[in-house]
Write a protein that binds this DNA or RNA. Structure first.
Lengths: 192, 192
DNA sequence: GTCAAACGATAACATTTGTTATCAAATACT
DNA sequence: AGTATTTGATAACAAATGTTATCGTTTGAC
């Protein structure tokens, strides 16, 4: 996993062994809570295999608002960066193989890496893309009906629908699981 | 306006005159369109006085999704950075006094400024805050009822409710203007 | 293999929200 | 001042969505 990553960062090869040694591999069962809402985050995760979801409590019901799959990095970014209690929980959906790294290590590496102009550009770009993603995801809540959001998800990220239980998807789409069932039935009716 | 800004960037004072000369001042009437959905953005704006809104077309109806007030910078960030057609329009709500700067100038200044470690930190932090803001705004759509979102807006940004016509606010909250009227009536009823 | 839990579909009913139309008040324009 | 435009409230009705309950199927644990 980490060897594969190396190819993406040719500029860091001389420091790579040091960076790699900061990552620890772990195997986790489904439905394991990696970070609990209200706790302070000290770790970031890199997903080798499996699927995570990020959720929060809304008057007693659990609401999913993001999914993460292979090769993504996951952390409660605000809690991680500012040391505040996390607004979210992070939980495995499937059995996962993860790499985790401690906050202090990440900070050290980042300080070192950001001095390289090409890396700086890449990091800024990643942050930028993340903002754009939030914006688009948010926009689809304003712009589209739940049915359209579901169809978009099917088209743009079919693996989500295939791998994640439906009630998580419903809350991710902002609707009840009953309503998602109805939407699926309606789509099937139209198709026939 | 620009002199006031200077105090925030002590590290840039020796280059400040050059930077300042890139900004042009303009006066604009209410309801003036500064950028039209579909056009490519070449300018960023800094608001000295007045209020802008960012909107897009949803099947023929105009939907507002952001407001900007004094001392904010506004651009169609994706269009501006990537040179893509803008997904949004930018329009004045009130009569405005603005400063605008061309894309090429901004890029030149940014490349220069980002080499200064303290400035780099500040820029990264600004991008970070912007992402967090999107996340929170987005979360309130999932987490809160329209009534709660309106109450939050009243509490956290009362000037928005005071300065912006109600139908813009309704679409900003993701509801029809009729529904916002009902919510206000319900709140008034409860209060009495 | 058996049992319990998780998952998903569906029905019935309640609530929320949108749409259209109408009216009154405020504002802008000339 | 007079008129048109914008703004906001409200009513009546339609559509969308949530809630609760039930049932069959699948999955997982032992």
């Amino acid at each position: 996993m980490l060897e594969r990553l190396k190819a993406n960062f040719p500029l860091l090869h001389d420091r790579w062994d040091d960076y790699i040694s900061c990552f620890k591999r772990m195997q986790v069962a489904p439905k394991t809570i990696l970070l609990k809402e209200g706790d302070i985050s000290h770790k970031a995760y890199l997903i080798e295999k499996g699927c995570l979801r990020v959720s929060f409590d809304k008057n007693g019901t659990d609401v999913t608002f993001q999914f993460f799959f292979e090769n993504s990095t996951v952390s409660s970014i605000e809690s991680f960066t500012k040391g505040l209690p996390s607004e979210f929980s992070i939980e495995t959906v499937e059995a996962c193989t993860l790499w985790w790294i401690d906050k202090t290590d990440i900070e050290r590496i980042l300080n070192e890496v950001i001095t390289i102009p090409a890396m700086r550009k890449q990091i800024l770009n990643t942050m930028f893309e993340r903002t754009i993603n939030y914006m688009h995801h948010f926009l689809s809540f304003i712009r589209d009906t739940p049915e359209q959001r579901y169809l978009n998800l099917l088209e743009q990220k079919p693996y989500v629908v295939q791998r994640v239980p439906q009630h998580y998807i419903a809350s991710y789409l902002g609707i009840s699981s009953v309503h998602l069932s109805r939407i699926k039935a309606r789509i099937a009716r139209k198709a026939s």
